[in-house]
Structures are given as C-alpha cells and as structure tokens.
Computed example of a mutant assay.
Amino acid sequence: METMLFVLVILLNIVTQVLSGCASNKIGIGTVSTGREIQGKREWKVTVTNNCDCPQAPIVLNCKGFQPVKKVEPPILEKRGDQCLLINGRPLGPFASISFSYGMDSPFVLTASMSECVLKF
C-alpha cells in the first residue's frame, strides 16, 4: 500500500510539473482589422488561442481602458473593472480559439493576466 501511495505521489508530481508550463503565457491573443465599421469606428477582430495541451480556465485578460463603442457580448467577454473574464470562466480547450469583435479607433492591446490548466479526474 505504501508503495502504491508513493508511486501515486510521484505521478502527480510529474503531471503537475508538466502542466505548470501551461499558464497565461500560453494564451495567444491576435488582433486584426476586419475592414468594417461599428458605429463609425473601425472594427477589430480578436482571436484568443490556448497554446497548451490542456484546457485552461478561467482566462482573465488585462483590459484597463478598454472601451469599445459597442459592448462585447458578456458570454464571450465580461468586463470587470480593469480585468475581462473570457467565456464566463469556462475552459478553453487545448489549442482551441475563440474570437470576438469590437469597435474602436485603433486596436486595443489585450494581454492575458491569469489562466490555469484545468485537470479533470
């Protein structure tokens, strides 16, 4: 029994070390102009990608000063002060992406401030 427990602890340690590299630095964010307008402002399309081999949640973005002319739908992006919660805190799957658009004069630089690998047992 002790041997089994020891092996389990070692395996969990290995899994934790492997997955610890999956954090907010593995969230890619790209912004491109769509060529369209929203209420007289340029439309920008943002794609957020999980560049990790595990689901990540919650994904929180720095969005201090982000004030688009039309609010992004809350199920996709919910502004909470200087932070924005992506997809209601639900996991974004491994190597999956989600996109949304907004209208502003120029692109807003969004960065990931927090995310964690979600393990399902």
Score class of each variant (00 low, 15 high):
113 S>G: 11
29 I>H: 06
77 L>E: 10
70 K>Q: 15
54 C>V: 15
76 I>L: 12
50 N>P: 03
50 N>W: 02
108 F>Y: 13
37 E>R: 14
120 K>Q: 11
12 L>A: 13
91 P>K: 08
83 Q>T: 07
32 V>F: 09
75 P>M: 01
82 D>T: 13
111 T>P: 04
121 F>V: 11
22 C>E: 06
78 E>S: 13
98 I>A: 01
33 S>D: 11
12 L>I: 10
119 L>G: 09
40 G>V: 09
118 V>I: 14
106 S>K: 13
70 K>A: 15
31 T>M: 07
67 Q>G: 07
21 G>S: 13
110 L>M: 13
40 G>L: 05
2 E>Q: 11
103 G>S: 10
24 S>P: 00
88 N>S: 15
121 F>L: 11
85 L>R: 00
26 K>V: 09
68 P>E: 12
118 V>A: 09
11 L>Q: 08
30 G>Q: 15
88 N>I: 06
61 L>M: 07
79 K>N: 09
56 Q>E: 15
59 I>V: 14
42 R>E: 04
65 G>F: 01
73 E>I: 01
44 W>F: 11
36 R>D: 11
108 F>I: 07
61 L>P: 08
72 V>I: 15
76 I>H: 01
72 V>P: 01
109 V>E: 12
70 K>T: 14
117 C>R: 08
48 V>F: 05
51 N>E: 14
28 G>P: 03
81 G>A: 10
6 F>T: 15
36 R>W: 04
76 I>C: 00
117 C>D: 03
26 K>F: 01
34 T>F: 01
24 S>C: 03
81 G>S: 04
32 V>E: 14
84 C>I: 02
46 V>R: 02
112 A>W: 00
70 K>Y: 07
30 G>R: 10
113 S>R: 03
27 I>E: 07
33 S>Y: 08
52 C>G: 05
119 L>Y: 01
95 F>G: 03
101 S>A: 05
75 P>N: 08
78 E>T: 14
19 L>A: 09
53 D>R: 02
94 P>C: 01
21 G>A: 12
